[in-house]
């Protein structure tokens, strides 16, 4: 009983505490936004780990898919629920925004998943370094594409999402963004865990370890690659949508290759092929970025330096390819690890 529901209870408690703190304004908005970016970063690093860690490909265009998700969900949201100078009056009453919000985020995820085909289809024939170049190209195509559509603001960006958040809070006065980020983070980890622990999803590891053997032992490698890339970019799209609504503003510049690199750092920091590693390193990295904020631009000297040190002394990352349960066996008393 305890083993079965321990994680559910823990998450429910965590969620409750977070919402309680935010609702009673016991933490300030700055801390709150860091907590939300933590969630976004967890989704990003876990979803990139699916491709880079579990499947053994090297994708460095993750921010591109995030961008697709961010734009699609924010444009759809503003079009439907907020008054805006691009789209004019909302098509639906803003009160529905609260109920439709998950749908908006999912729409961004689905759009990003289809953008993932941009990488998935070339991956049938290419892999390794060559595919890495394709992912960079995909990142650039998406960013430059959006920069050149002046209707949605071009490189100046797109805004108006704050109105949606306010109309959600008008309906029920709760810190809605925090709640949504929390729920979507859990959703992402949940979906990845279930996928990867099924025999179907273990085809991903089979491809990573020996693609020829995978194909010859009846794994439909092209299908698995398509699903995996689409799932990974779809989750990046969800993270992008949340990111856009947290900021209330998006511009293509924030999804450039530097952002992709940031996600890569989180994946390698946490350990390839370890979901708990990705979660931990996303939390750690978000905090680190904030702690180093006083250094301003020097920050981008210190963080890459940390990466060099990490690669020298612990190339497998914090967790290696192990999960929490392998490192702390006592946790098994509370939870059945798959």
């Amino acid at each position: 009983m305890l083993r079965r529901y321990s994680v559910h209870m823990f998450l429910a408690l965590l969620g409750f505490v977070l919402v309680y703190l935010a609702y009673n304004e016991l933490v300030n908005l700055y801390i709150l936004s860091i907590l939300m970016f933590m969630g976004v970063n967890i989704i990003l690093s876990a979803s990139l780990n699916l491709v880079n860690g579990y499947m053994g490909e090297f994708s460095c265009g993750h921010a591109g898919f995030m961008c697709v998700g961010a734009y699609v969900s924010s444009m759809l949201g503003v079009l439907l629920f907020a008054k805006d100078k691009v789209f004019g009056l909302p098509l639906l009453s803003p009160e529905f925004a609260l109920y439709a919000f998950p749908v908006l985020i999912f729409a961004g995820g689905v759009a990003a998943a289809f953008a993932g085909l941009l990488v998935a289809i070339p991956s049938y024939k290419t892999r390794g370094d060559y595919l890495a170049i394709i992912t960079i190209a995909a990142n650039y195509i998406i960013i430059s594409g959006i920069e050149n559509i002046s209707y949605i603001g071009g490189s100046r960006g797109f805004m108006g999402m704050k109105r949606l958040i306010r109309s959600m809070e008008d309906v029920v006065d709760l810190p809605w963004m925090l709640i949504w980020v929390f729920l979507f983070t859990i959703f992402s980890i949940w979906i990845l865990r279930r996928y990867l622990s099924s025999t179907f999803g273990k085809g991903v590891s089979a491809i990573c370890q020996d693609e020829v053997a995978a194909e010859i032992m009846s794994v439909n490698t092209n299908k698995i690659k398509t699903i995996t890339f689409m799932l990974s970019s779809g989750l990046a799209g969800i993270a992008g949508g949340l990111f856009a609504y947290i900021l209330g503003y998006v511009n293509p510049g924030s999804f450039n290759i530097l952002k992709s690199t940031e996600v890569l750092v989180m994946v390698y920091l946490g350990g390839m092929g370890s979901l708990s590693g990705s979660v931990l390193s996303a939390i750690f990295f978000t905090v680190l970025l904030e702690v180093l904020r006083p250094l301003q631009i020097i920050k981008w000297v210190v963080i890459p330096l940390l990466l060099i040190i990490l690669m020298q002394f612990r190339p497998e990352g914090i967790m290696g390819n192990r999960e929490l349960g392998d490192i702390f066996p006592w946790l098994k008393r509370f939870y059945r690890f798959k």
């Binding site: 025999t199 273990k202 590891s205 990573c208 370890q209 020996d210 020829v212 009846s218 794994v219």
Partner: peptide
């Protein structure tokens, strides 16, 4: 050409991929 990071059991399980049925 076994999958080196998968257990022996998983090696056999994954090879049944074509008739997973889900």
């Amino acid at each position: 050409r076994l999958w080196s990071d998968m257990t022996v059991l998983d090696n056999i399980r994954v090879a049944q991929h074509y008739r997973l049925g889900y």
